[in-house]
């Protein structure tokens, strides 16, 4: 095998490793992705009417898209990470510019991009569901909100939560959790339509 070929293979393996790391919330992988890909996006956004903060927000959204994509069993990435992140960012930024009512003649950049339309649609649906859940959780009030967050977000056990919230035993905490969950469900489903 030629040296070039080996290097390509190494790069591919490296990308695969990064994506596996990302799927498992590995902090080194996340950091590596930021380090190697954020500057390109920063450059792109700042050269197209945006600020450093805009670049940060856009890149964060693209990272979420990639993160949620690698979670899927059906996950395949048909291009380089760099190209994928850039394509997502480009679309998101274009959309943001349009929302702000700025003229957006073809955005200037020499970066390669791929079609990410499908992924963006999936993302939009998830964004909507996320917002509904967020609103529902925030309108629950305490202790429901913290109790459910403790259980579902921070993956704490019922006993630990009982101690934290001062319930006399895990069963009581559990009972409370179910009551809260029912309220959350109701709030969520009044806005979220199955089959939509």
């Amino acid at each position: 095998m030629s040296e070039i070929r080996i290097n390509i293979l190494k790069a591919e393996l490296n990308e695969q490793a990064l994506l596996r790391g990302l799927a498992q919330n590995d902090s080194q992988a996340v950091e590596a992705l930021y380090k190697s890909h954020f500057p390109v996006i920063q450059h792109f956004v700042e050269n197209n009417n945006g600020s450093f903060d805009d670049a940060r927000d856009i890149f964060q959204e693209a990272m979420i898209a990639l993160y949620e994509k690698v979670q899927l069993d059906s996950f395949v990435l048909t291009c380089q990470i760099k190209t994928y992140l850039f394509s997502i960012c480009k679309h998101l930024w274009l959309k943001r510019l349009q929302q702000m009512g700025k003229y957006s003649n073809p955005l200037s950049s020499e970066e390669e991009s791929v079609s990410v339309q499908e992924d963006l649609e999936v993302m939009e649906k998830k964004d909507a569901a996320f917002a509904i859940m967020d609103r529902a959780l925030n309108s629950l009030g305490e202790p429901c909100k913290s109790l459910l967050e403790g259980y579902y977000l921070n993956k704490k056990g019922m006993q630990e939560l009982a101690n934290q919230f001062g319930y006399t035993n895990a069963d009581n905490a559990k009972n409370q959790k179910y009551k809260c969950l029912m309220r959350l469900k109701k709030l969520f489903f009044t806005q979220y339509n199955i089959g939509d």
Binding site: N25, E31, Y34, F38, I64, Q71, A129, M133, Y152
Partner: peptide, 25 residues
């Protein structure tokens, strides 16, 4: 519903992680 909560939790946690990484760098 549980699927939705799970997605919500995943995104919320990753969002935090991602922000922390950014701020650290």
């Amino acid at each position: 519903f549980l699927q939705q909560i799970e997605w919500y939790a995943q995104r919320k946690n990753f969002n935090q992680q991602s922000q922390n990484t950014f701020n650290k760098l």
